[in-house]
Amino acid sequence: MTTEGKSNPLALVGLLVLTLIWSYSWIAMKQVTLYIGAFDFTALRCIFGALLLFIVLRLRGRGMRPTPFIPTLAIALLQSCGMIGLAQWALVSGGAGKVAILTYTMPFWVVILAALFLGERMRRLQYAAIGVAAVGLCLVMQPWQLSLSSMKSALLAVLSGISWGASAIVAKRLYQRRPGLDLLALTSWQMLYAAIVMSVVALLVPQRSVDWQPTVFWALSYSAVLATALAWSLWLYVLRNLPASIASLSTLAVPVFGVLFSWWLLGEKPDGLESLGIVLIVFALAIVSLKKRAPQIHSSVK
């Protein structure tokens, strides 16, 4: 019997921890763009993240056997390379709060892809929540105010969200086919593949020279240890224990806090429409949280 439809306190705690870690990570990722190229930083983040994950894997005696190559590589390309790399690139010219919001259009792509490939169907109130969240995201983004200079950043951030959504579908299908798959091993191997790919990209794409300031080391440590190694492991765990669409929609809390952190720490103050958008997103999250109880009861009857 799967745990997807049941109340899972650990999965909910995982979502809370992810919110805090990933919300602040947008601040660290933005600050470091002044000192290092996007692809160099992403490659280093994946390298150190993979190293840490394999050390933990070894210490826990899980074995070092690779997970299925094709789906693991697909997750690496879509999740670590696509989502992280494109988002970091978008931050070079975009504000942390705006890029976070655009990247987190991911849940909408997951809902569409989950319906097409996983057979998941959203209930009416959940569709309503998506609509409310979409309006909120639009108010925060304010696409009618985007200048030509910010279009590149916005497009990269949206592509980052699409890539992340696709990786969630690949991971979900892999769990369905391999229910006993080791989460730590999967996270470790996909991070290793991503480190290799991003290292090649960093070598081939011209970037600014690295200025090894303390900010670089701080951002790299935070990103590799918390936002990469720990957080991706938590994300895969949450994704395994909750429906893909629900888990992804719930993570809309991350860009909300990301906007607040960017306001507090970077001076990116949201205007009236952006504030209204944040309120609508929080309201949509409340709808999703309440509605999740209905499927849980239905599953327990089965």
Results as ranks from 00 to 15, higher is better:
175 Y>E: 12
168 A>S: 04
147 S>D: 12
157 A>K: 03
156 L>S: 01
147 S>M: 14
233 S>W: 14
223 S>M: 12
137 L>Q: 05
146 L>Y: 09
153 S>E: 03
169 I>W: 01
153 S>G: 04
129 A>E: 00
147 S>G: 11
184 L>D: 15
172 K>M: 00
138 C>N: 15
168 A>V: 04
144 W>I: 03
185 A>F: 12
194 A>P: 13
182 D>Y: 13
192 L>N: 08
151 M>V: 13
204 L>C: 09
202 A>P: 00
155 L>W: 10
187 T>F: 00
223 S>Q: 13
134 A>I: 10
143 P>N: 05
149 S>G: 15
122 M>D: 05
183 L>N: 15
173 R>Q: 11
118 L>F: 08
200 V>E: 14
157 A>N: 03
121 R>P: 12
240 R>C: 04
154 A>C: 05
164 W>L: 02
195 A>F: 00
166 A>P: 05
135 V>I: 10
164 W>M: 04
215 T>A: 09
231 A>C: 07
125 L>P: 08
196 I>S: 10
124 R>Y: 12
165 G>D: 00
187 T>Q: 10
195 A>E: 01
198 M>K: 09
126 Q>G: 12
203 L>P: 08
136 G>Q: 00
123 R>L: 14
151 M>L: 15
142 Q>G: 07
169 I>S: 01
127 Y>W: 15
173 R>K: 14
152 K>Y: 06
124 R>G: 14
133 A>D: 02
181 L>T: 11
185 A>G: 15
144 W>A: 03
157 A>Q: 00
218 W>V: 07
